[in-house]
C-alpha cells in the first residue's frame, strides 16, 4: 500500500515520516511540492518542518504549492491526509481544517515528550488506538497554539472531531487543550505533536506513534 510524503522546501521530518510508513508495513512514496502528481498513492502525510522558512505565516505559502492543489481536491473526495506540525498548519491554511495555529502562549519553542489522550479512534488515522488511550510522543514547535472562534470550537467538540488532547499542564495555549482535529468526514487529520518520532523505543519516548501509520494501512486494506 503506497502512502505519499510531501517534501516542501524546508520540510524536516519527511524522512522520519517515510520511515514510519515503511516500519508500519507500507510503501512510502516521495512527493514533490512543485508537482501536482500524487503518483497513485492511497494517502498522504504532510510532514513537519519549516516550509518556506515559515515566512508570512507558518504553512501559508506551502498551502499554494502545486501538490496542495491536487491534495485539496482529493481530500474533498475522501482521500486520507495526515498533517503533522507544519503539516497541520498547512492544512489549516488550505482550509481543509478549520482554525489556525498561532505562537505558543509563553513564546518559547517547545521540544519535549508530551502526553496526549486519543479522544477519537474512529478516524482512518486513529482506528488502531483504544478509546481514550493515553500516549507519549514528542511535541516540538514554536507556533502550536490552536485557535478558532467559539462556533467552530462548539462544532469540533459536538461532532467529536477533537482527535487528541494534551494531558497535564497546557503546553501552548491551545483552546480546550486541542492537540489534533479532523475534518467533518474524518479523512483529514491535523496533529501538532509528532507520531513519526515515536515508532520504536530505541529512538523515541515510546512506540505509540506507530499506531497512526498502522491504522491508515489497516483502513486502506479494509476498503
Amino acid at each position: 500500500m503506497k502512502i505519499g510524503v510531501v517534501t516542501f522546501p524546508g520540510s524536516l521530518d519527511d524522512r522520519d515520516a517515510a520511515r514510519a510508513i515503511e516500519r508500519a508495513g507500507g510503501q512510502a512514496v516521495s512527493l514533490w511540492h512543485n508537482s501536482d502528481d500524487l503518483k497513485e498513492v492511497s494517502a498522504v502525510v504532510l510532514p513537519g518542518g519549516f516550509s518556506y522558512g515559515d515566512y508570512l505565516r507558518c504553512g501559508a505559502i506551502a498551502s499554494f504549492a502545486p501538490i496542495m492543489q491536487s491534495i485539496v481536491i482529493a481530500a474533498n473526495h475522501g482521500f486520507p491526509v495526515l498533517g503533522i506540525c507544519n503539516g497541520f498548519q498547512i492544512l489549516c491554511e488550505s482550509h481543509l481544517l478549520p482554525g489556525a495555529l498561532t505562537r505558543n502562549h509563553e513564546l518559547h519553542f517547545l521540544c519535549r515528550d508530551q502526553k496526549l489522550r486519543i479522544e477519537n479512534n474512529n478516524s482512518v488515522w486513529t482506528s488502531g488506538f483504544k478509546s481514550n488511550q493515553e500516549i507519549l510522543i514528542p511535541l516540538k514547535n514554536g507556533e502550536g497554539s490552536y485557535q478558532c472562534d467559539d462556533a467552530v470550537l462548539a462544532t469540533l467538540e459536538g461532532e467529536n472531531r477533537v482527535i487528541a488532547r494534551y494531558i497535564g499542564e497546557d503546553p501552548n495555549g491551545s483552546r480546550n487543550l486541542i492537540a489534533g482535529i479532523s475534518n467533518e468526514r474524518g479523512n483529514v487529520v491535523g496533529l501538532m505533536p509528532h507520531p513519526e518520532h515515536a515508532i520504536e523505543s530505541l529512538t523515541g519516548p515510546s512506540d505509540d506513534g506507530l499506531t497512526f501509520f498502522t491504522s491508515i494501512l489497516h483502513s486502506l486494506v479494509g476498503r
Binding site: 498561532t102 505562537r103 505558543n104 502562549h105 509563553e106 513564546l107 497554539s145 485557535q147 472562534d149 495555549g173
Partner: peptide, 14 residues
C-alpha cells in the same frame, strides 16, 4: 493585525 479576540503573546512581551 490579529483580531482583538486572538491572543498576541508577542505584543504582550513587547
Amino acid at each position: 493585525m490579529l483580531k482583538d479576540e486572538i491572543l498576541d503573546p508577542q505584543g504582550q512581551a513587547v
